[in-house]
Each structure stands twice: as C-alpha cells, then as structure tokens.
C-alpha cells in the first residue's frame, strides 16, 4: 500500500510541478515564494475541508453538507460577534468548532443509527443548514462593518511570515496525519471503508466509526466557517455555495478512493493544492475561468482512471479465486 499510494502522490506532485513550470513559462512572477505562500493561504479553507471529506470518504461515505455547515457556522459566529463584540476570539473559535461538530454529529447519527445512505442524509442536511441561515437572518447579509476588528483580524494575523489561516491548515495536516497513521481511530477509518464486513468481524463498529468521521468533517467545516466569513468579512446564505463539490474533487484528485478505504492526508493536501493553483493561476495567465472548470474536470477523470488501474489487479485475483471455489 505504501508503495502504490506513494507513487500515486508522487505522480500528483510531478503534475503540480509541471503545472507550475507551465505557468512560470508565461508568468514567472507566479512562482515567487511570496506568491506561492499567498496561493497556499488562499487554498487553506479547501485543504481543511478536504481533510475532513477524505476521512468521511475513507469510511465509504460522503459529506455533501460541508459547505452548508461552513456557511451556517460562519453566520452563527458572525451573529454572536454582533451580539457580543467583546467575546474573546478563542471563545469564538471554540464555538465555531463546537457548532460544526454538532452539525457533523447530526449527519453521523442519521447514518449510524438510521442507516440512511450518506449521500441522502447530507443532501438533506445541506439544504436544511442553508435554510436555517435564511431563518436566522431572513436573507440579510452580515457585512464587514458589523463585525468587530478582532473578529476579522484572526485569519490574517501573521506569525513567522505566514497568516494564521495558513498555520491552521498546516496544523490540521500534521494533526490528522498523526490521527490517521498513528491512532486506533485512524486505523478503524481505513478498516471500516476498506472492507466493512471484515471490520465488523474484527470487532470494529462500522456505524460508530462513520459517525466519528462525520464529526471530524463537521469540526473542520465549522472552523473553516469562522475563518471564511472573517477573512472575506461577509456572511450570507450562499457563502461557499457549491464548494462541497470542489472539496470532493480535491479528494478524488488526491487519490482518495470513492469506494472507501484508500486515501491519505498528503493526497488530500496535494489534491487541494492542485485545484488551488489552477484557480489562482488561470486568471493571471489570462485563461478564461471556464477553462478552469474544464481543467479541474479533466484532472478528476484522469485521477479516477489512474486509481481504477492501480486497484484493478488485486480485485481480479480475488474474483478468479472465488470463481473456481464454486
């Protein structure tokens, strides 16, 4: 597994390098360290959400409600900030994570206890979360001037030359890399998605494992919700509309198998960066944004084809064995 996934991620790294080289040939300024740092910062919300989504997909589920969770949590902390401008930012961040966890747990409970297919559950909660924003605000925006300065300052505060937003993304990558490779919970994500039957036999509660995956995805979406509204200094119903599909795309490009059980934090990170670079570079080199969609779409298909081929041979061996046993 190490070898295949390593080569898969290496391949993606090479693709990113080629992409950067191509952009640099037309617009050298794009690859200066300062600009690359800016691109990374801009991609940080996508990285955070892709990590959560990857964990959910690992367990053979999908979370379509991440962007709606982000928007609702963002709105909730904005409203709290208006109501209590003096509240310390640590509390605001804690509320954002906690509220995101709550929303993620709703998904998780429905998938675990009621055994509803995750795509249906999260399609439903996606709509509900957006609806709740409307109920909270009657469609009104929360604008920059209503937010406290401290509220808006957090993501852009620089530490060692990088904004807090970037540091949060980096921390999440490290944290969840450890969770997935070094903890029993991380192992059970892979087992539950890789072969739910075998995982059950090994004493893993697959439903509960999926619940935790949704909870983590919710936590990251909630945190990103605060970072998003404070960075753009605006909160409204349609914040990050349709962004859930970009998040899933980042995972797929990053080599996460939509069938579950295969994927790494590094893959999700690289998948997100690939999309982030395309989104930032194409306007600069004067390519229409419509091409951006086409390129992202092409990248998804190529990634899926590569993954399918990497996974093909073991499956065939098993089938042949099973066949002659009858």
């Amino acid at each position: 597994m190490k070898r295949i996934s390593a080569s898969r991620e290496l391949l993606l790294l090479i693709a990113i390098a080629l992409l950067l080289a191509l952009i640099a040939s037309r617009f050298p300024a794009f690859v200066t360290p300062a600009n690359l740092a800016a691109v990374f910062n801009d991609t940080s919300p996508l990285i955070l959400l892709a990590i959560g989504q990857m964990i959910v997909i690992l367990t053979k589920c999908i979370d379509l409600s991440v962007a709606a969770n982000l928007a609702l949590t963002g709105m909730v902390v904005s409203l709290i900030n208006i109501a209590a401008p003096g509240l310390p930012m640590v509390v605001i961040v804690a509320i954002a994570i906690g509220f995101g966890i709550l929303l993620g747990m709703i998904n998780g409970i429905l998938v675990w206890k009621l055994a509803i297919p995750p795509i249906v559950v999260t399609l439903g909660t996606m709509t509900i979360f957006r609806g709740v924003i409307f109920l909270l605000t009657e469609g009104k925006w929360v604008n920059s001037h209503e937010m406290s300065d401290a509220f808006k300052a957090v993501p852009r505060t620089e530490i060692f030359g990088l904004p807090v937003l970037s540091w949060i993304a980096i921390s999440a990558v490290i944290l969840f890399w450890i969770v997935l490779t070094r903890t029993t919970l991380g192992r059970s994500f892979y087992a539950a998605g890789g072969n739910p039957n075998a995982a059950t036999y090994a004493g893993i509660n697959v439903g509960r494992t999926q619940f935790w995956a949704f909870t983590i995805s919710g936590a990251l979406a909630g945190l990103t919700g605060y970072l998003w509204v404070s960075r753009f200094a605006v909160a409204y119903v349609d914040v990050a509309g349709g962004f859930e599909l970009t998040v899933v795309a980042a995972c797929v490009i990053g080599g996460v198998s939509i069938m579950g059980g295969i994927g790494t934090v590094l893959g999700a990170l690289l998948g997100a960066l690939f999309l982030g670079i395309i989104a930032n570079a194409l306007p600069v080199v004067n390519i229409s944004p419509f091409w951006q969609m086409a390129i992202s779409g092409g990248a998804i298909i190529i990634a899926v084809v590569l993954n399918a081929q990497a996974n093909r041979s073991p499956g065939r061996i098993i089938l042949k064995r099973a066949e002659h046993a009858t």
Binding site: M1, Y190, N195, N197, A198, A199, I204, I262, G315
Partner: peptide, 16 residues
C-alpha cells in the same frame, strides 16, 4: 468479503 482488508498492509490486517 469477510476476512482480509485488501487495501491495508499485512501487519495492519493482522493487528486489527
């Protein structure tokens, strides 16, 4: 179907 987890390495299957 019920025994091994194909995508995980040997040692992780054994210790699951």
């Amino acid at each position: 179907k019920q025994g091994a987890i194909g995508a995980l390495p040997i040692f992780q299957n054994v210790t699951l």
